[in-house]
C-alpha cells in the first residue's frame, strides 16, 4: 500500500511553488475567457451574417482550430509567433494568446447556437422600430443570447481551466507545474500529483455545481 507523507508541505512550500502557478492558471483562464468570448461573438456574427466572404473566413477559422488538438495549437503558436514578430516570446504570454484564439473557436459555436435560439420575431421587431443591424444585435439579440447560453459558456470555461494544464507542452509555469516542481524539489512527486488532482477536482467540481444551480435559476425565470 502507498505510504504518503505530506509532512514537508508547509505554507512556505505552498506560497513558494504553488501560488505562483495558480495565479497564472487563473490569469490565463480569465484572459482567454474574456478575449475568447469577445472574439467568439464576432466570429458567430460573421457566420450568421449571410455575407459569403465573412461566413467563409469564420467557418475556416472555427473548423480548422476545432480539428487540431489543443497541444498542437499551443506548439504551433509557440513556433509561429516568434517567426512573425521577429523576436522570442515567453511561454506564458504565448499561452495567453494561444488560448484566446483557440477558445474563441469553441465559444463562437456556443454563441452561434445562442443567437439562433433568439426568435426571429425579435430581430424583425428591432428593425420595425427603426433600429439598425448593429443596434438590433447589441440591444436585443446578444443580451438574450448571452443569457440563454450563460451556463454553457461557464461550463466551457471550466473545461478551459482544465485545459490550461496543457501549457506543460511549452513549459509555462501554471498550477500543475507548481505542484510538479515542488514534488521534484522535495522528492515527493506522488503526494504532489495527488494534491494536484485534488485541487483541480475541488475547483472544477464546485464550479460545475454552481453552474448547475445557475442553470436551474435561469430555467425558472424563463
Amino acid at each position: 500500500m502507498l505510504e504518503t507523507d505530506f509532512g514537508f508541505l508547509t505554507w512556505n512550500v505552498v506560497s513558494g511553488f504553488i501560488i505562483k502557478g495558480f495565479i497564472f492558471s487563473i490569469q490565463l483562464t480569465l484572459a482567454a475567457m474574456i478575449g475568447g468570448i469577445a472574439l467568439g461573438t464576432v466570429l458567430a456574427l460573421m457566420r450568421l451574417s449571410g455575407k459569403k466572404l465573412l461566413v467563409l473566413v469564420a467557418a475556416f477559422y472555427v473548423n480548422t482550430l476545432r480539428s487540431i488538438p489543443l497541444v498542437m495549437v499551443i506548439l504551433w503558436f509557440f513556433l509561429l509567433i516568434p517567426l512573425l514578430i521577429g523576436r522570442p516570446m515567453g511561454a506564458e504570454l504565448s499561452a495567453i494568446i494561444t488560448f484566446t484564439v483557440f477558445e474563441a473557436a469553441y465559444y463562437s459555436e456556443i454563441m452561434r447556437a445562442g443567437i439562433q435560439s433568439v426568435p426571429k420575431g425579435q430581430v424583425y421587431a428591432g428593425y420595425a422600430v427603426g433600429m439598425t443591424y448593429g443596434q438590433t444585435m447589441q440591444l436585443i439579440v446578444l443580451p438574450q443570447a448571452f443569457r440563454n447560453m450563460l451556463p454553457v459558456l461557464l461550463t466551457q470555461t471550466i473545461i478551459l481551466f482544465q485545459d490550461t494544464s496543457l501549457v506543460y507542452a511549452i513549459g509555462a509555469y501554471d498550477l500543475l507545474k507548481g505542484f510538479e516542481v515542488a514534488g521534484k524539489n522535495f522528492n515527493r512527486p506522488v503526494e504532489m500529483y495527488l494534491l494536484a488532482a485534488a485541487t483541480y477536482f475541488v475547483i472544477c467540481f464546485s464550479l460545475s455545481m454552481l453552474v448547475r444551480r445557475l442553470q436551474k435559476k435561469i430555467q425558472i425565470i424563463r
Binding site: 494544464s165 496543457l166 512527486p189 500529483y193 495527488l194 477536482f201
Partner: peptide, 17 residues
C-alpha cells in the same frame, strides 16, 4: 471524478501514482 480532473493530471496519476 473523471470529469473534473484535467486529462494531463489523470495521465500523470496513472503513470506516477
Amino acid at each position: 471524478l473523471f470529469r473534473n480532473i484535467p486529462l494531463l493530471v489523470q495521465i500523470f496519476l496513472w503513470y506516477h501514482v
